[in-house]
Design a protein around this nucleic acid. Sequence first.
DNA 1: TAATTTGTAACTATAATGGTTACAAATATG
DNA 2: CATATTTGTAACCATTATAGTTACAAATTA
Lengths: 146, 146
Amino acid sequence: MVTNMNTNQRFAISVHALTLLAANADPLTSEAIASSVGTNPVVIRRTMASLRELDIVESKSGTNGGWSLAREPKKIGLCEVYRSLGEVNVLTVHGHPNKLCSIGGNISGVLQSVFDDAQSELEKALAGYTVADILKDVLKKANGSA
Amino acid sequence: MVTNMNTNQRFAISVHALTLLAANADPLTSEAIASSVGTNPVVIRRTMASLRELDIVESKSGTNGGWSLAREPKKIGLCEVYRSLGEVNVLTVHGHPNKLCSIGGNISGVLQSVFDDAQSELEKALAGYTVADILKDVLKKANGSA
DNA sequence: TAATTTGTAACTATAATGGTTACAAATATG
DNA sequence: CATATTTGTAACCATTATAGTTACAAATTA
């Protein structure tokens, strides 16, 4: 069985978009990014707007406008990109345990601290990669298979 | 913003149920477990059936039947419990990147390996806890606040 | 035989997600 | 200034995953 606990593609889209920007000197339009990512420009705008809040990208309206990196690719860690998605919990405590049960009444806090620990390890791993790393690996593949 | 990448409570439910079994000598019915977890017996049966496939629990039909642990609590690591959910991917690669683009055509594999790395760290963290640990912490809370 | 309990299929309600349309606001160009 | 370009954002829809629920068959015990 394959369970998709997470059909959320926003993180992958974010990294893809940033990698694309890192590979291009000029700003790219939502349209152009959407074409590479394989989605709709509005989806890109939504995603990029979150990244802009963390000063990872900048936008400019109008002719010759578009999106560009606000920092060098090697200064953009994937954990920060991940955090642009908001307060994500990859593991979720269940909703309504029975407060009258000694287990049910006390397990939520215990689970939450375990889940926090696990997620922190996940984020630590993501922090080990930058957009520059991703671009390098992508280009390596592109040249290797060209 | 709070994004629930994951509204899946099955893992929390699994750990809760196992902790409950660890705290009780006799088998517990789906009904009893459901009452502590705060859900429906059928949800419990579904969850427990997955755990049974990994020989973490056993079931018995009929009067005085129910669910029991197939192993000592300290021999049940949370990573294994997590794996009972199936092939879970906490980070998902996006669907349709543009194959004609050098970035779009090569990023999926790169992302997947990063995601695999991150998830492996998450699972490693989970492997550091056993059902016995959870029970101990829950009972500590229960006594502390009693 | 009757009561208990799991096994499982089928259906529903809810919610998250991504895709899409529509249009306002900002900007550049001629 | 007028026009084309491009982002900003609200609104809505289709799809999907999830959990909850009902219903009933199968197994087990007494």
